[in-house]
Design a protein around this nucleic acid. Structure first.
Lengths: 157, 157
DNA sequence: CAAAAAATTGACTAAATTACTAGGGATTGG
DNA sequence: CCAATCCCTAGTAATTTAGTCAATTTTTTG
């Protein structure tokens, strides 16, 4: 299966966006700082998310990104497939030609697993995550840390 | 998450072993041919499976591998973790130090997913798979193809 | 209008990981 | 003995990921 930092970053960034979305768009530089993700890399991810119609870019000063839909209408599986192309666990991409044009011995097993994963992640929306306690706590902590950083740069490290 | 060909090969090979196990051990060369897996690579995988106590090696002519336990007592999650080390989907290996020593915003989400996957695969045994129709069909086809190959490549016959 | 802020795009690259090869023992049945 | 088989260690080619760099376009603010 393909669940790498790319997909994880995308979900994290979208959640950050959802959490900080009010009237004004959220700039990628802010998300990058809060979530410790390289800005250039985030730009690539948001390009895909925009093409997938999940976010809208607003250019110019005061610009940034906004969710195209309410947070509870965006589920995690969508986000990952938007940047990662697939949540599939088969070797053949579900085509069933894993062993010279025939399904391999375990083809059905991986198909079942893929569906399991997809269903799980499709059943969770950004809105769901926002309402979780642990996540609010983490988001809060990150906001506080951001303020400290904005003047004093990163301390010793 | 880490579900790659390594884990898939291991499960496939174990299933092949379970399917062909009778009194005599099954040689890796046979599994390699039937499942289209490089012999050396299989040897590496079985070294791990052996260390994990799932199979027993028998040396010498007529030797090979045997399951250490009945097929219905070996589940898929075990096999994968034995060769792949982890079914974890977090970046931090579940430790919660994903963002400078603190859990990242989506830590809990990936923990939940990992558990979901683990539970699904732990609930399926080699024995379960053996009793599935599609799998018996594929195994049968592979056996027939093997016989054709052993002397004259694919003969019309 | 000019300058700045921010998205947008595309090409390139370093590092990591995977999948696989090579080659040499060690055992044992016939 | 000898050939089949497991067993072990190193090395390597290919792929993928995560990230950089640089240039451009669009829009807003002053």
């Amino acid at each position: 299966m393909r669940l790498t930092t790319k997909g994880r970053y995308a979900v994290t960034a979208m959640l950050d966006l959802a959490y900080h979305s009010s009237k004004r768009p959220v700039a990628l530089t802010d998300i990058a700082k809060r979530q410790d993700i390289s800005l250039s890399y985030l730009e690539q991810l948001f390009a895909k998310l925009r093409r997938a119609g999940m976010v809208t870019g607003v250019r110019g000063p005061g610009g940034g990104y906004q969710l195209s839909r309410p947070a509870h209408e965006i589920n995690i599986a969508e986000i990952i497939t938007a940047v990662d192309e697939t949540l599939d666990s088969t070797r053949c991409g579900g085509k069933g030609n894993c062993q010279n044009d025939q399904p391999c011995l375990t083809h059905e097993l991986w198909m079942g697993l893929s569906e399991q994963i997809r269903a799980y992640l499709a059943g969770i929306s950004l809105g769901d995550l926002l309402s979780r306690h642990e996540i609010q706590q983490v988001a809060n902590r990150q906001d506080r840390e951001m303020q400290g950083v904005s003047i004093g740069e990163e301390s010793v490290n």
